[in-house]
Deep mutational scan, measured.
Amino acid sequence: VTTYKLVINGKTLKGETTTKAVDAETAEKAFKQYANDNGVDAVWTYDDATKTFTVTEMV
Rank of each mutant, 00 (worst) to 15 (best):
V1M: 14
V1K: 12
V1R: 08
V1F: 13
V1S: 08
V1T: 11
V1G: 09
V1E: 13
V1W: 14
T2S: 10
T2P: 05
T2D: 10
T2G: 06
T2Q: 12
T2H: 14
T2L: 09
T2C: 12
T2A: 10
T2M: 08
T3I: 13
T3N: 05
T3H: 05
T3K: 06
T3S: 06
Y4H: 02
Y4I: 03
Y4V: 03
Y4T: 02
K5N: 05
K5H: 13
K5S: 05
K5C: 07
K5R: 11
K5Y: 15
K5D: 02
L6S: 01
L6W: 03
L6F: 05
L6P: 01
L6V: 03
L6G: 01
L6I: 03
V7M: 04
V7S: 03
V7E: 03
V7G: 01
I8G: 03
I8V: 07
I8W: 13
I8E: 01
I8Y: 09
I8F: 12
I8A: 03
N9P: 04
N9A: 08
N9V: 13
N9Q: 09
N9C: 14
G10Q: 05
G10W: 13
G10H: 09
G10C: 15
G10V: 15
G10A: 11
K11Q: 10
K11V: 12
K11P: 12
K11I: 14
T12C: 15
T12R: 11
T12A: 08
L13D: 06
L13W: 14
L13T: 09
L13H: 13
L13A: 07
K14W: 12
K14M: 10
K14A: 08
K14F: 10
K14R: 10
K14D: 05
K14P: 06
K14C: 15
K14Y: 10
K14T: 09
K14E: 06
G15W: 15
G15T: 14
G15V: 15
G15K: 13
G15H: 14
E16Y: 13
E16C: 15
E16K: 06
E16I: 14
E16M: 13
E16W: 13
E16V: 14
T17Q: 09
T17Y: 15
T17G: 04
T17S: 08
T17H: 14
T17P: 03
T17R: 12
T18V: 08
T18E: 08
T18M: 08
T18N: 04
T18R: 05
T19H: 07
T19M: 14
T19Q: 06
T19K: 04
T19E: 04
T19D: 02
T19R: 05
K20W: 10
K20Y: 10
K20P: 04
K20V: 14
A21Q: 04
A21K: 01
A21Y: 05
A21R: 01
A21N: 02
A21L: 02
A21W: 04
V22I: 12
V22S: 09
V22A: 11
V22F: 09
V22Q: 09
V22M: 09
V22T: 11
D23F: 03
D23K: 03
D23S: 08
D23L: 03
D23M: 02
A24K: 15
A24Y: 14
A24E: 04
A24N: 04
A24V: 13
E25K: 12
E25S: 10
E25G: 07
E25P: 08
E25T: 10
E25R: 11
E25A: 13
E25Q: 12
T26C: 04
T26L: 05
T26D: 07
T26G: 06
T26Y: 04
T26V: 05
A27P: 01
A27V: 02
A27F: 02
A27R: 01
A27L: 02
A27G: 00
E28Y: 15
E28L: 15
E28M: 14
E28S: 06
E28P: 00
E28I: 07
E28C: 14
K29Q: 08
K29M: 10
K29W: 06
K29N: 06
K29L: 09
A30G: 03
A30R: 11
A30I: 15
A30N: 08
A30E: 12
A30H: 14
F31V: 01
F31G: 00
F31K: 00
F31R: 00
F31E: 01
F31Y: 01
F31A: 01
F31D: 01
F31H: 01
K32T: 05
K32L: 07
K32A: 04
K32Q: 07
K32D: 01
K32I: 08
Q33Y: 04
Q33A: 12
Q33V: 08
Q33R: 10
Q33W: 05
Q33I: 11
Y34E: 03
Y34H: 04
Y34S: 03
Y34L: 08
Y34K: 03
Y34P: 00
Y34T: 03
A35G: 03
A35Q: 05
A35D: 02
A35R: 06
A35M: 15
A35I: 15
A35K: 03
A35H: 07
A35N: 04
A35W: 15
N36A: 14
N36V: 13
N36P: 07
N36T: 12
N36I: 14
D37I: 15
D37Y: 13
D37H: 09
D37A: 13
D37L: 15
D37V: 13
D37F: 15
D37R: 09
D37Q: 13
D37S: 10
D37G: 09
N38P: 05
N38M: 15
N38D: 06
N38S: 10
N38V: 15
N38K: 11
N38Y: 14
N38H: 14
G39I: 14
G39C: 10
G39Q: 07
G39R: 05
G39H: 07
G39V: 12
G39N: 09
G39P: 04
V40H: 06
V40P: 05
V40R: 06
V40Y: 11
V40A: 06
V40D: 04
V40K: 06
V40W: 15
V40G: 05
D41E: 10
D41A: 09
D41H: 11
D41V: 11
D41W: 09
D41K: 10
D41Q: 09
D41P: 07
D41S: 09
D41F: 12
A42K: 06
A42Y: 14
A42E: 04
A42I: 09
A42S: 08
A42R: 05
A42M: 14
V43L: 09
V43I: 13
V43C: 10
V43F: 09
V43S: 08
V43K: 08
V43Y: 10
V43E: 08
V43W: 07
V43M: 09
V43G: 03
V43A: 06
W44G: 00
W44M: 08
W44S: 01
W44P: 01
W44F: 11
W44K: 00
W44V: 02
T45E: 11
T45Y: 08
T45K: 06
T45P: 00
Y46H: 00
Y46N: 00
Y46P: 00
Y46L: 00
D47I: 03
D47C: 07
D47Q: 03
D47E: 05
D47V: 03
D48Y: 05
D48I: 05
A49T: 12
A49C: 06
A49L: 11
A49Y: 09
A49K: 09
A49M: 09
T50V: 04
T50C: 02
T50I: 04
T50P: 00
T50E: 05
T50Y: 03
K51R: 08
K51G: 02
K51P: 00
K51V: 02
K51T: 02
T52H: 00
T52A: 01
T52W: 00
T52K: 02
T52L: 02
T52M: 02
F53P: 00
F53N: 00
F53Q: 00
T54G: 01
T54L: 05
T54S: 05
T54F: 12
T54P: 00
V55H: 03
V55K: 03
T56M: 06
T56K: 05
T56A: 05
T56S: 09
T56Q: 07
T56I: 10
E57I: 12
E57K: 06
E57C: 12
E57H: 08
E57V: 11
E57T: 07
M58D: 11
M58W: 11
M58K: 13
M58F: 11
M58V: 12
M58I: 13
V59Q: 11
V59D: 14
V59Y: 12
V59M: 11
V59A: 10
V59N: 12
V59L: 11
V59H: 10
